[in-house]
């Protein structure tokens, strides 16, 4: 059997598009981590809620797809802010990081993810819901056909990253967010409303997750259990790129996507979901700081 370069190219292309989605979710996780020093374990469920919001807006309300995407992002952002205000505030105020409160935050996020998944199950049921978006004929590259939803995903993802980068680097609000991420006490002394910025970080991260959910909807179907695997893969992406580094999250997402698709194609498709974990564990063991990360904080 001779080696088929065009199918290899196709695998890499599909890996890239799915990787971009991983990258967006990883971006949110990284944002929360760099801002609050906590890892949000319920992020996969926010992503799942975002996908369902997108589905509801586009199928039941009947708005066009881009508008549904925007609405889903806003809804999930509000959901994230509410969750943070009601549940996490007590813990984030105690200080995140690697203290006992950090462990509490991990357990709390874990519990919250189960709660959110159960709520979604009670509302929408366990069936996988197809997400119909008619975008027209797929693009043709030689003998590979790329559905337009994939192309749209890549473009949207790049746009979102650029927008986030612009927000963080060029606007005054973004400067405030970065100040809070750097040092909350000093930011507070500089007259920045720290609790508001923390809510903003959470809202932004959740909106990104919702965008990823709505973008991936037309490629796969939307179902209640989609969040958990996505969380793991986004974690893998965030870790591979370097936890807390925003460009790293994207690069990590692309790497995880390609790695996973190539593994599924050339090793064994039924083990597809393990490759991301393997990459995660490999990177954690060899270079915990990831590709772009600052030094992983390991005491002693």
């Amino acid at each position: 059997m001779d080696f088929d370069f065009s199918s290899l190219f196709a695998f890499i292309l599909f890996g890239l598009t799915i990787g971009v989605v991983y990258g967006i979710v990883a971006l949110g996780i990284s944002l929360i981590y760099s801002g609050l020093d906590i890892v949000h374990f319920a992020h996969g469920e926010i992503y799942m809620f975002g996908a369902f919001f997108g589905l509801v807006f586009s199928e039941q309300v009947g708005v066009p797809y881009p508008l549904a995407l925007l609405s889903a992002m806003i809804c999930a952002g509000v959901l994230g802010i509410v969750i943070e205000r009601v549940f996490y505030r007590r813990l984030t105020r105690a200080g995140g990081g690697y203290t006992v409160a950090g462990m509490g935050m991990i357990i709390c996020g874990f519990g919250m993810s189960v709660v959110l998944q159960n709520i979604a199950f009670l509302i929408w049921g366990a069936d996988a819901e197809p997400f119909h978006v008619d975008l027209g004929e797929p693009y043709q590259f030689g003998d590979i056909s790329l559905p337009k939803s994939y192309a749209l995903t890549a473009v949207m993802a790049l746009f979102l990253m650029a927008a986030l980068h612009f927000f963080l680097v060029r606007t005054k609000l973004g400067l405030a967010v970065r100040a809070v991420a750097h040092n909350k006490d000093i930011a507070f002394l500089m007259g920045i409303n720290v609790p508001l910025m923390i809510s903003l970080i959470f809202g932004l991260a959740c909106a990104l997750a919702a965008a990823a959910g709505t973008l991936i909807g037309p490629m796969q179907s939307v179902q209640v259990e989609m969040g958990y695997l996505m969380l793991m893969k986004a974690f893998a992406a965030a870790v591979v790129g370097g936890f807390g580094s925003l460009p790293g999250a994207i690069v990590g997402g692309l790497l995880v996507g390609i790695f996973e698709n190539l593994g599924a194609a050339y090793i064994s498709p039924s083990h597809k979901d393990i490759y991301a974990f393997l990459l995660l564990i490999l990177v954690l063991m060899i270079k915990p700081s990831g590709l772009f990360g600052v030094e992983a904080r390991v005491k002693a």
Binding site: V39, M103, V239, H271, M285, P288
Partner: peptide
Amino acid sequence: GLPSVRLEGAYLALATLGLGESVRIMIAV
């Protein structure tokens, strides 16, 4: 436990969660 030598807190939680879930998927497939 090997990751615990180099990792702490959230990283360790991730690594162990990944390993635990890999085991289940391995058994499942």
